[in-house]
Design a protein around this nucleic acid. Structure first.
Lengths: 224, 224
DNA sequence: ACACCTTGTCACGTTTCTGTTACCCGATCT
DNA sequence: AGATCGGGTAACAGAAACGTGACAAGGTGT
């Protein structure tokens, strides 16, 4: 189990880290929201533990940003000193899974973490679909009209981004950034990948789903 | 889902009952600990929601008594007006699964109930299986088509992680961390271990269960 | 101390993926 | 009409990922 702790109070962060490491969990630690976000981009975590009040970026904002970055939506738990119902509700509405009011016991924290892990790994079957095309984000199975389709990593990524934004147009820029972040290739590889994706998804079937909008980008949608 | 609410404040009990019934849960209701205990003896419940401060018998005592009565250990959630760390610890140490501080939102209550249900009903099963492959987590026996299979520590670990997540894809990262936490070997040992695991589990049989997804990871599943 | 098993490491072969290039076409602009 | 631009099509070669198998160090139990 890999845990990222984002908490500006060093002493709290440290005692959590030590305790969890004792139980064979892998812990990373960030003082503030920005560095937390960076760590989340670089590594894979099962659970995020966020202090609500953070320098630079509030835990709440960090929470929403994490939803975008992390592929399979992550388990998120808030720590808060404030203990009003309002806070709790805000936390849950932002897509977090649990919250804990300081002070808390470490055993309790661990119990909660385990509970979240169970929940997020069992309950969240995410399937994107349009027309007869379905993409299961957990199993990574892609099907159209019941037929299995095997996609390479990049093609798969493009497809999921298109589907998540469907039926909106996704700019070339966005796609490029999703695939390669900042160090994208010199040539227009995106063109090739789109082509390959179409070969798999559109070519064998009657009506195409992926549509080009010149100078704007691409979108996936059923046209009448 | 069958819920027993034990709460002396009639208004609270009623609003919970109405809300849960709206979501198709079956609710029973007792004013005090003794009648709550009687109801628990007569009927079967999935979850108990107990107020901590009750006439005749405290919620905490009721909690311990319930553990004895109910066969498969039940999901128990406390409601409390007091909000100190001590209370929380007492609650958890008595074998309860969660607690909620008044006032709370009904949506939150429901979310917690569902979480407990998932936890208590999922985590109990000690045998993982897929197709004709079974892994007994207690005895550590692994079988396919009735044949015994002996696995090394690492292979066994990989298999259980794959099975627990089946049919979802498990990233190399996840597997690596499950095996070695942070001090993983320099070389790509995982590759070797997967190979060895396949030798035992897939090679001797007709259809493979372990599947590679390039650049993503592995998953265990039956393909048609 | 010995036989045995496990495990990290390495080397090699194979498959798959991916960036690159070249060429084509249609739309748009001058 | 011709030039230009954005995009589609196709093949290729290098790179990356993965499978396979062997080996030696280290550990375990006898």
């Amino acid at each position: 189990m890999r845990v990222l702790i984002v908490e500006d109070a060093r002493s709290i962060a440290q005692s959590i880290t030590e305790f969890l490491q004792l139980h064979n969990y892998t812990c990373d630690y960030a003082h503030d929201g920005v560095s937390g976000l960076n760590l989340a981009r670089e590594n894979e975590y099962d659970i995020f533990i966020l202090d609500i009040s953070l320098p630079h970026m509030s835990g709440l904002e960090l929470c929403t940003r994490l939803q975008d970055i992390v592929v399979n939506n992550p388990g998120i738990m808030f720590l808060t000193a404030r203990d009003t119902l309002d806070d709790k509700l805000v936390g849950f509405s932002k897509g977090c899974d649990d919250y804990l009011v300081k002070p808390f016991s470490l055993d309790e924290l661990k119990a909660r973490i385990d509970a979240i892990y169970e929940r997020t790994h069992h309950a969240r079957s995410k399937v994107l679909s349009i027309d007869t095309l379905t993409v299961n984000l957990e199993t990574r199975e892609v099907k159209r009209e019941g037929q299995d389709i095997v996609l390479t990593k990049n093609c798969y990524k493009i497809l999921t981004v298109l589907l998540k934004n469907s039926p909106a147009v996704v700019s070339r820029d966005t796609l490029t950034h999703e695939l390669w972040a900042d160090n994208f290739p010199d040539s227009d590889s995106l063109k090739s990948h789109i082509y390959r994706l179409r070969q798999e998804i559109d070519k064998p079937f009657a009506k195409p789903l992926i549509h080009t909008i010149q100078g704007e980008g691409f979108r996936i949608a059923v046209l009448l």
